[in-house]
Design a protein around this nucleic acid. Sequence first.
DNA 1: CATGCTGTTTGACTGCCATAATACAGCGCG
DNA 2: CGCGCTGTATTATGGCAGTCAAACAGCATG
Lengths: 112, 112
Amino acid sequence: MAGHSQPVYLKLRDLIAAGIIDGTFPEGAMLPSVRALAAEQGANPLTVAKAYQQFQLDGLVEVQRGVGMFVARGAAERLRRSEREAFLANEWPQIRARMERLGLVAKDLLTT
Amino acid sequence: MAGHSQPVYLKLRDLIAAGIIDGTFPEGAMLPSVRALAAEQGANPLTVAKAYQQFQLDGLVEVQRGVGMFVARGAAERLRRSEREAFLANEWPQIRARMERLGLVAKDLLTT
DNA sequence: CATGCTGTTTGACTGCCATAATACAGCGCG
DNA sequence: CGCGCTGTATTATGGCAGTCAAACAGCATG
């Protein structure tokens, strides 16, 4: 069964990223364990691990095998910065083009 | 080779939709043939057919078998309307939430 | 040292996407 | 009619992404 509009591991990734950025998971704190988050979100532990993996590679979370995963120093700031960069570079241009094609103006939507 | 961020048939679908909306394919005009568009875009005719199929079901293009496919009356307007609706209902809320989380403000993005 | 938590690896299965080759079916025009 | 264009259907193949189950490995604590 793999018929989702957005892959589960990406949703989890966003969930974790949001938690780090907004302080739900402060720097130095231990993140939810793979199995715990899996149970809570009704997903497979491996899928959760896959979500975490991206953060490890970027050094945003530090792993202590057998103990847990912890939010690295400066992770929130670094994460916000890189997400911003990625958003402005990749997503926003397409969004703007799409809006222009549809005759929508950002102004009208942001004043709500 | 099937490692695309966005499926080919969806890209083609967008390409056609854009053409209908912006008048590249005016109402009543014949659309590029399956084989022609396939050759032009370096894709498989079947994949192109799959892209067109969605429009047929919505009645936005009318098929004259053995002749070609033609842009239906009012297709541009209907298409723009439905795309707008879908955008505002599905994508825009997520975009707004994401922007808010990243601390991005309209002002930064409205610089044309 | 045994129990219970942690993360990690292996192997396999499924579905979607895309491709290819072929054949079929409808229409128009010389 | 026959040729050339149109869309459509069939079947088979390959690849990749997503998900999962089960076994493996490290650390802490009673």
